[in-house]
Design a protein around this nucleic acid. Structure first.
Lengths: 146, 146
DNA sequence: TTGCGTGCAAAGGTTTTGCATGGCA
DNA sequence: TGCCATGCAAAACCTTTGCACGCAA
């Protein structure tokens, strides 16, 4: 099935993704944005197109947490060969993109030394970001400790 | 706040988790099992306890895909080490304990260079283990990559 | 014309929340 | 006795699916 029909919605979604290569976007984000732009696309259609894009490898799908929406990111050609990890702050929820040569070393070490090939698309580092670390220092104690 | 009241449900859930340290279980799995055992616990209660266990680091939460249920796994005491990371094979589900000084360097680099403090208890590297990599080489092509 | 693509609404599933009741300390 | 914990049901979300209609080829 080649690539399906060329429709207005298909172009709209693909343009959105290529225009936001650096961002992790949810279906909601896309839907809202397109509505605001006057080119609304049905939610189901967005899901259906993203699914195809993920299958073809042009878009990556990140699942940060169940219960919350999945994040999608367009994969540009030149990033396909880079190691691209993510840092997720558990305090504020921020998602940080980590492009760093050190990570390449890490991958190589884990593979050579431990026989394990890391999939950067799936791997997320959990922890605390700079802002939240600073806030912790300021506050005497965490308000909630559950 | 200490650890909350000691209740029957709390013990039931904790016992279930410690009895199934090697398994990845969903809330549904737990709920069904406990019902069969004649010690049913409400779904909301299971969620509430698991949330606390995850926060305390005694249980890990894996989110394979949004839309599907999260998986939980008990972390035994001797594995509760800050310097230890884990590798999870997405093919066979194996969980590998990674003890390596390189990881300490990694943590230090991420903190110093990127202002992010990684929490090793929550962070899991996803990828393919040695065995599954070998199998892939044998097979002509991967059928699905999820 | 053919048949895929789209949008709406409903369904399906997981997780959270409100509230009255019950149990721990 | 004072609260926290529990359970039920409902709500809140995310995602998928069914179906009639529209549009690309």
């Amino acid at each position: 099935m080649a690539n399906g029909y060329k429709t207005k919605q298909r172009d709209t979604i693909l343009k959105y993704m290529t225009d936001h290569q650096d961002a992790h976007v949810t279906v909601n984000t896309i839907s809202d944005y397109l509505s605001e732009q006057g080119t609304p696309v049905g939610t189901a259609t967005i899901y259906r197109h993203l699914e195809k894009l993920v299958e073809s490898g042009r878009v990556r799908k990140y699942t940060v947490d169940s219960g919350t929406g999945a994040c999608f990111q367009y994969v540009s050609e030149d990033r396909l060969c880079h190691e691209h990890f993510h840092l997720k702050c558990e305090k504020c929820g921020k998602l940080i993109h980590l492009e760093c040569s050190f990570m390449k070393e890490l991958s190589e070490h884990i593979l050579a030394g431990h026989g394990f090939e890391i999939d950067p698309r799936r791997t997320v580092f959990y922890g605390s970001c700079r802002d939240c670390l600073n806030q912790e220092t300021i506050e005497t104690e965490e308000p909630t400790d559950v």
